[in-house]
């Protein structure tokens, strides 16, 4: 048993207070009646109502979701392929360059990625809009997906694929009917990560978006620069709640699966 001292308890308390208090304050003040955000004037949900009246925000939200959906889907396909290549393809010409390109966007400052893609789109004369944001987000999100999938693939028992080949699968069939179902949890979490990254991205979207394709972070950013507003508080609260529910559900499901697997194993050992 590990010793759990008062020091540990204190640092956990303060640590989590630091992490969660700002968000808690945000949530509380989103129900503030007054427009003066720092003065509490009673409970009200009027800012939520106003938020849902605000067409500019709703449009931006819709654009953001579309962009996130398409880019995370594309990024998942490309990132899974990239991960599979990195782990399974062995040597091929230009492997060094490929692995460099896969990892570079992870450490590349967003301003550089955004700038370079914008200059590229201008050079090939593409009008900026949803398409260009999707392309940009796909490019950096596929690298995150490939990292997630790679870490699953390296622990994947290669003999499962060989067994499939041995039992008459073509290599593609083996990938589809054995590898893919087994790495699916990693692929799904890669997709979720890509989706969140895309939802969240301000810098790259600002560079690559056109006048008619403002995303939610761009909208929030320009509103926030002028100071705190209760609508943004309401919007933030909604986003925080969605994420919280999502993460807690996901972790409950995965913990349930782990507990069930352990119980199964115990049962199997007893016959």
């Amino acid at each position: 048993m590990r010793r759990f001292s008062w020091f540990n308890a204190t640092s956990l308390t303060f640590g989590f207070a630091f992490l969660y208090l700002p968000m808690l304050i945000l949530i509380i003040y989103s129900f503030n009646e007054s427009r003066l955000v720092t003065v509490w004037a009673g409970f009200s949900t009027q800012w939520y109502g106003e938020l849902f009246q605000n067409e500019a925000f709703l449009d931006a939200a819709w654009v953001t979701i579309k962009v996130a959906f398409w880019s995370s889907t594309l990024a998942t396909i490309l990132g899974t392929m990239a991960a599979y290549i990195m782990v399974r393809a062995g040597r091929f010409r230009g492997r060094g360059l490929f692995s460099g390109m896969i990892y570079a966007p992870l450490v590349m400052p967003e301003v550089i990625t955004g700038l370079s893609l914008l200059l590229f789109f201008i050079a090939i004369d593409v009008n900026r809009g949803i398409l260009t944001i999707v392309l940009a987000h796909t490019t950096f999100a596929m690298c995150y997906v490939s990292v997630v999938v790679t870490s699953r693939l390296v622990t994947f028992d290669k003999s499962l694929e060989e067994a499939a080949l041995d039992l008459g699968c073509t290599p593609f069939d083996a990938f589809r009917s054995v590898t893919l179902p087994i790495i699916m949890p990693a692929v799904v979490s890669g997709w979720l990560l890509a989706f969140t990254l895309s939802l969240d991205d301000l810098v790259i979207a600002t560079f690559t978006s056109g006048p008619s394709s403002t995303t939610l972070p761009i909208k929030i950013f320009s509103a926030v620069r002028l100071g705190v507003t209760p609508e943004i508080n309401a919007l933030s609260t909604i986003m925080i709640l969605i994420v919280t529910v999502g993460v807690i559900t996901a972790s409950l499901i995965s913990r349930g699966a782990t507990i069930k697997a352990k119980a199964d194993e115990r049962k199997a050992e007893q016959g």
Partner: peptide
Amino acid sequence: FQSYALFP
């Protein structure tokens, strides 16, 4: 296979 390679 040595690890049996049963499809989980």
